[in-house]
Design a protein around this nucleic acid. Structure first.
Lengths: 172, 172
DNA sequence: TGATAATCGTTGCAAGTGAAACGATTTTGA
DNA sequence: TCAAAATCGTTTCACTTGCAACGATTATCA
């Protein structure tokens, strides 16, 4: 019976989970030990840092984080002086979140380290292999999208208008 | 400045994490909603099901789970009648964990569904692409192993002697 | 216009997780 | 032989997470 041959360590969902966990754990040493950020905080900060003012929901839509996680991450980042929060004038339900100078400084310190880690990961890959990896991952997402009860997928970055790096005072 | 170009949605650790989370969430509907298992319980059950008696530490070494998670998963699975726990005669510190008939029944029901899900995931891949995916993942693990402060990697299945399938009364 | 529905961000709460500590047992080594 | 160290599985505790509910605000449309 085929069921008896089931081997967890060769099971793709498990393998992906283990690999992802190991990578996340290693990366978290960069933003965690050195900068005191949690994973949600890291994601929110780097996402907001290169954007215009954003609402919690917009971050929630763009980054793979639950709304409460975004809310709490933003609160902590604000307390740390890395983000600034204001209630929107046009719609008082919304908050406008933007990076501060201190947040941008931290961003500029942390991002090269994160990119170096990513570069180290794929250092042994050829360009073709890197492309292949991204292609295969993309196609796995496509399958998930087709499945019934498909779990939510964060918006692609290109689906939102890319804003200028934060210092510009933008007309509306 | 390169740091300003940082794009979270193209950052490999993030992409892997999102993909892995989506897949795990979909898979958990199989063993969760239908069979009432948590992820640690699912992993422990299917790992033990095709093995001889194992200790908590052996499961911890083989599966990517912390020792407390294994302990708690085993406790719940025992309470559910899916695993049996005995203190080892030779060494009273150890417990011998093995699957019960009920656990094996559940195993035989759940594994085909899990395999079907995995098959659906890679259904659009050629054999070469499947091999390529596993190869790329394996090489990412290799990089992680070389890194300083490398996080623990679970033992390969082949590094432990494969035990007989517990239910010998099932030819075919 | 006004009642209802929808949306926003936050909070409460239950469940899960990881690191450390613990008692029990075995191994080590003087 | 026996005290110290190591190992085992469990438990404790602080922390995180996801879901639902909430108050506040805005949108809908009869």
């Amino acid at each position: 019976m085929t069921a008896n041959d089931f081997n967890l360590s060769e099971f793709l969902p498990y393998k992906l989970s283990v690999l992802s966990s190991r990578i996340t754990k290693m990366l978290s040493k960069v933003y965690g030990e050195e900068y005191g950020l949690s994973t949600p905080e890291w994601r929110v900060l780097v996402h907001v840092a290169r954007r215009e003012k954003m609402s919690v929901r917009e971050i929630h839509d763009s980054v793979y984080l639950e709304k409460p996680s975004v809310s709490r991450a933003v609160a902590k980042l604000e307390k740390a002086g890395l983000l600034a929060k204001t209630t929107c004038d046009k719609d008082h339900r919304l908050v406008e979140i933007e990076v501060t100078d201190a947040g941008l400084d931290l961003f500029h310190g942390i991002v090269p380290e994160a990119l170096a880690f990513e570069a180290a990961l794929v250092s042994a890959f050829s360009d073709a292999e890197r492309h292949q990896l991204h292609n295969l991952m993309e196609r796995l997402h496509d399958v998930l999208d087709m499945l019934p009860n498909a779990t939510r997928r964060p918006q692609m970055d290109s689906e939102r208008p890319t804003a200028l790096p934060n210092d510009a005072s933008q007309p509306r």
